[in-house]
Amino acid sequence: MFKRAFTSALAVAGVVATSLVAATPAHAVAFQTTAANLNIRSDAILSASVIKVLPGPTSVEVDCQKSGDSVTVPGRAATTWWAHLPAHGGYATVGYINTPGTKLPGVPDCPPDPEPPADDVTLADVQAMFGTRIANPSLVQTGLPSLNQAMRDANINTPYRKAAFLATLVHESRLEYNIREIGDTRLYGGRGYIQLTGDFNYGPAGRYFGIDLLGNPELARSLQWSAPIARWYWTVARNINPMADALNMGKVNAAIGYPAGAEDQRRCDSFKNAIRYLTGSVPGGIICTRPAAYAGDTSKLTRAQFDALGQTPGALG
């Protein structure tokens, strides 16, 4: 049972402009924007992903508005209100809409965001598990709906599996869906929750989802694809849930694909912290070190090659 505090779920996640219906609801109200290039975000917070940039000034239709991050535009009072633009599938700050006040007249408030499912991981949960490793809470919050969906899709549904998955991602990306590996200028360098790396991963992941990751590697750190790609790596490129079930964090780390070293213990400590939070105690039998066969960099191995490392010659199963 999670020790959770109330946090609201973000209602809009992983939406691309091409999938949006351009029709305007009958109750929408017309306004004029004031910016030459206005960011339309997936939610009413400044860390939410920019799903498109709207040229302008131009006319827009607004069907509702919600309170979010405060924005101050020169010459105007600060506003926390954001307009939902149904034709563009996202939110724009009221600060760049031509209106005399800080809230739009004649526009209803958006319905409250639904609470997350009971088993979903919240921002409060990951902060309790990992402390200061959660360096950008609002960005982590933006990605959690898609991350929780990926966990459901991957059957990451037990405390051990959740602890292994989240401990891995907090070390790979600080649980920030759009992170790029610092200083990595390679075309297929680390991106996203699980820091997808190498054409040997971008190619198969793209084929699995039917997208061109080789031609557009930046998709790997988009709100739409970052979490599904992490799920793909966890269950398709590798089969990591059974390793978590066995409390074998050493093998989990080997499956992620980096050479053995001090980082293994740091990740294992995070795994223990997560289990302690999720269950109230740390079980015996956690394995933090790797067998010798897994000590090297396994990142370029196929799943079959990785699985074969654990097979003893002549053994069955």
Rank of each mutant, 00 (worst) to 15 (best):
L10N: 01
S42W: 03
W232T: 04
G189F: 14
G314V: 00
G189A: 08
Y96N: 10
S47R: 14
L309C: 04
E115K: 15
A230T: 08
P137H: 03
N239T: 03
A48R: 02
E218D: 15
E61D: 06
C288K: 07
C268L: 00
A167K: 04
Q311T: 08
A262S: 14
A164L: 11
G257A: 08
V60D: 01
G314W: 00
A230V: 06
P117V: 11
R290S: 09
P217R: 01
S146H: 02
N178F: 14
R186N: 06
L301P: 02
L214T: 11
T168M: 13
G143L: 03
A83W: 03
A260Q: 14
A23G: 01
N201S: 14
A135T: 14
T197K: 05
A44T: 11
P57K: 00
N37H: 14
A244Q: 07
A77G: 04
V73S: 04
N148D: 10
P291S: 12
L85W: 07
R152Q: 13
N136W: 13
P259L: 11
D120C: 10
D153N: 13
S281K: 01
T24N: 05
I256P: 03
D297R: 05
I179H: 03
R221Y: 08
T302P: 00
F209W: 13
T18C: 01
G75W: 08
G210N: 08
A295N: 05
T58F: 03
T289V: 03
A13G: 11
